[in-house]
């Protein structure tokens, strides 16, 4: 198969999306926002046409596309919104949509903990800082101009493109793909069967237990114990550092 025939179609939505994000970024000049919106819509529709719906029934497919579209559109709006509070709220929506995707893929714990950590704590802290910086309704030009919109968009979309190409290659190599009856250039959303980790000590014999807390715990503290401990240590060091940086009571703070 010709490389350009196979992958050329992928480049068009990427370029369109890059253009749309760059166009919609807040700017001093008035631009017709409708143009950027149309480009973004076209990019999303083309991308969607290349995606195969995940295996499963209609409800799953519809939910998948709703969550995926919500995530992508919210992410775009998060980058392009002029108001930092709205940007933080779009970020929260991205997180919630991704949590929906996690739930759809039978990872409820990951979903709930992402909501607790990201939507419930981190974005709340963002909002806290933004609210400290500016009140609603006050028109400040502070922090409303992107510094390098073009470079940032191009860089971001090159990364995204690399990710997509790699995924596509992986889908072909995997062998479980539907490449026989997929059109050339079409995307493989997910392999239908997830191979269990052969080194895992977690029980896979019960299909109902996949994604349950027990299996997750076994996997985290059995198969990936070292990574978990390293991550925990790094977080602990960060916590100690934060406490060390904080001013003492004798330095005049409460």
């Amino acid at each position: 198969m010709d490389w350009s025939k196979e992958n050329g179609l992928l480049i068009i939505p990427l370029v369109l999306g890059c253009f749309a994000v760059c166009w919609l970024m807040p700017s001093t000049r008035q631009r017709p926002r409708i143009l950027g919106g149309l480009a973004a819509l076209a990019a999303i529709l083309m991308m969607q046409a290349m995606l195969l719906p995940p295996a499963g029934d209609y409800v799953r497919s519809v939910l998948f596309f709703v969550f995926a579209a919500a995530a992508v559109i919210s992410a775009g709006l998060m980058i392009t919104d002029r108001n930092p509070v709205y940007a933080a709220l779009w970020f929260a929506l991205v997180t919630l949509a991704v949590c929906g995707l996690f739930l759809l893929n039978a990872a409820p714990f990951l979903s709930a903990s992402t909501i607790i950590v990201y939507a419930g704590a981190i974005i709340v802290t963002f909002l806290f800082v933004i609210m400290l910086a500016q009140q609603s309704g006050t028109a400040t030009s502070y922090d409303q101009q992107p510094i390098q919109p073009l470079m940032a968009s191009v860089g971001g979309f090159i990364l995204l493109g690399a990710l997509l190409f790699t995924l596509q290659e992986w889908g072909h190599i995997d062998g479980t793909s539907t490449s026989e009856h997929a059109e050339p250039g079409q995307f493989i959303a997910l392999p239908k069967e997830i191979e269990p980790n052969p080194l895992s000590q977690a029980p896979h014999d019960n299909p109902h237990e996949i994604g349950s807390l027990r299996v997750l715990g076994r996997s985290l503290f059995g198969d990936y114990l070292f990574s978990v401990e390293i991550a925990g240590t790094v977080l602990l060091i960060a916590t100690i550092g934060a406490i060390a940086i904080a001013p003492r009571r004798s330095q005049g703070t409460l």
């Binding site: 979903s111 709930a112 903990s113 607790i116 939507a119 419930g120 609603s136 349950s212 807390l213």
Partner: peptide, 24 residues
């Protein structure tokens, strides 16, 4: 629901958005 407690904490942690957004 296998994760009842975590679900409750996840959902109630979102309740603060009502307060923050209302206040802001």
């Amino acid at each position: 629901v296998d994760l009842g407690l975590v679900f409750i904490f996840a959902v109630t942690s979102l309740a603060v958005y009502g307060i923050i957004l209302g206040g802001w």
